[in-house]
Design a protein around this nucleic acid. Sequence first.
RNA 1: GCCGGAAUAGCUCAGCUGGUAGAGCAACUCACUUGUAAUGAGUAGGUCACGGGUUCGACUCCUGUUUCCGGCACCA
Length: 639
Amino acid sequence: MIQITFPDDSKKKYKEGITIEEIAGDISPGLKKASVAGYVNDALYDLNRPIIEDATIQIITKNDKAAFEVLNHSTAHLLAQAVKRLYPDATFGVGPAIDEGFYYDINTESVIKEEDLEEIEKMMHRIAEEQTEMTRKELSKEAALNLFEDDKYKQELINDLPEDETISVYSQGEFTDLCRGGHIGYTHKIRHFKLLSIAGAYWRGDSDRDQLQRIYGTSWFTKKGLKKHLKVLEERKERDHRKLGKELKIFHLDKDAGQGLAIWLPNGYAVRKQLEDYVYKLEKKAGYKHISTPALGTKKLYEISGHWDHYRENMFPIMERDDETFVLRPMSCPHHMIVYRSELRSYRDLPIRYAEIVTQHRYEASGALSGLERVRAMTLTDAHLFVRKDQIKEEVLAAYNLILQAITDLKLEIEYVELALRDKDKGKFHDNDKLWDMAETTLKELLDEENIDYTPMTGEAAFYGPKIDIQVRTAMGHVITMSTVQLDFLLPERFDLTYIGSDGEKHRPVVIHRGLISTWERLMSILLEQYKGAFPTWLAPVQLKIIPVNLELHSDYAKKLNDQFIDEDFRSELDLREEKLGYKIRDAQTNKIPYQLVVGDNEIDANKVTYRKYGKKKQTTVSVDEFIAMVKQEIKDKT
RNA sequence: GCCGGAAUAGCUCAGCUGGUAGAGCAACUCACUUGUAAUGAGUAGGUCACGGGUUCGACUCCUGUUUCCGGCACCA
């Protein structure tokens, strides 16, 4: 007999070899049905894995977060078994559960197509109906290597396992897979799933190695859950910034203009201008000075900065004219170093904060380009802060808080904060260990002191230094970098930047690179998805649309209002087209204009307006002055 | 860049196994002159992404290129 301790500290004796499923069944039939797996002394156990010693257990039920992972991981195994039946030559890479489902990487001579997924799915259902048990077996490394002797991927995985790690395999029917486990025990418990897509993926994420075929899918405990998720996927497409950007005439991409080279249309530029003005004001208040430097610079400038050595592959090819070689700038830091260097600086001058609206060009891999999210020409307000060492923390923190301010004002949410560190084994980082350690330690300390949760990311640093990256999740579910604060001890060295200290000696300043809210391109993609194209009034390309009920009778009043609104700095437009009222109203609504004003006799008589807020049915009649005050307040509040 | 898919009117899409293209919306014309999501009638609009091939004949089949889409790698 063994003693099982439950989360509430109650204890009960069971025969050795009892499973989570049996214990759940002992408590209640309902719990048995809802149980998915369990934690046994904090280790994830399959539903049907025998427990052989005294243990504290916790039953995972369908509603627990871990349950979804277990189910999806098990579904990945089911997928692999089905694929193996249909494609006997198939070998497998990894097949984990992910946020919203699972995938499995497959190597086969056959090319699996989108249309084949249906057949694979059918086979999965058939296997599930066979009601096979998923059983665990632990074995020695030697035995494991033997078992997978025809599978180079599994061999590699086994050889890379730590020596003390237990090697386990899971079998269901004829199919056996290397796996750490945490399974649902029986194939027939997997019922509501869908295969979603097929894509290429490099073995172990290494572009120099094999490319496998990756099948993505999602698996749920109920039909309703699956259906709901599929609907979410559908709805995401509706807020795709590429679709909204076209519908609302925000931007245009044209292959004759060049791939990844986005064109801002009037509506898009109207929004961007508001953002530019907003950021300018924010920076001015925070003590930044704005400058302007060229998009073109000498190759030498980028050799000094180190970009030529470390970033060349992301740069457009050089241009030669007379005896000079030029490059299109991918970043603005080198120019800002030059600006700093242009005068003699005193310790009293620091911190110096330079900001610039910069258009930069980067040669991004063609396959990476996507709408406004990844482009080859991008504009942002970039900034570099030149500080003394004793000012680092204060200035990094101030920059971080400025970022928080912008993210809050834009109603965005931070997904998580990354601390990007270097990987000493990778060559892409400059090699001054002392500077690196100093920079990394400083940032870590700061984040800890401020109680900011962060995820360390080894190898993700910029070549010149570590960075704090602020990640947001797009409506499409992608996590992307929104803002960044980077600490740089290298460029001051390379440009020989100095200031005169209180001791009369030359000292080295430190540079903080700061990206506030990404580039206008990326920000626009995020905002379009965030707002579903319905911009808040302060950003909307057109804020007010005035529609006269009758063109002959009410146009004069509409024009008068429009003039007045434009004098108030509102972005107001008149709709004087010879169309029906209903048509114009629909047009204003489909263009997601915040305020739609219909004016007729009632309004003229009382010098009032009747407005309808976008998305709302309610009509409100107020005096013109009241309306102006209300909209002004709303713009001010950024709501 | 890599793996897979796609490309038909300004936009969204139909077009079965080869017989040179169609709808809705938008545009234009005419009539209608309107109180909160599409007035009606008509007109025009296409080297079916581009190049090469197979064929009596190619939007359709083969092939190359370009761009876009789903991922991977890369990244703001």
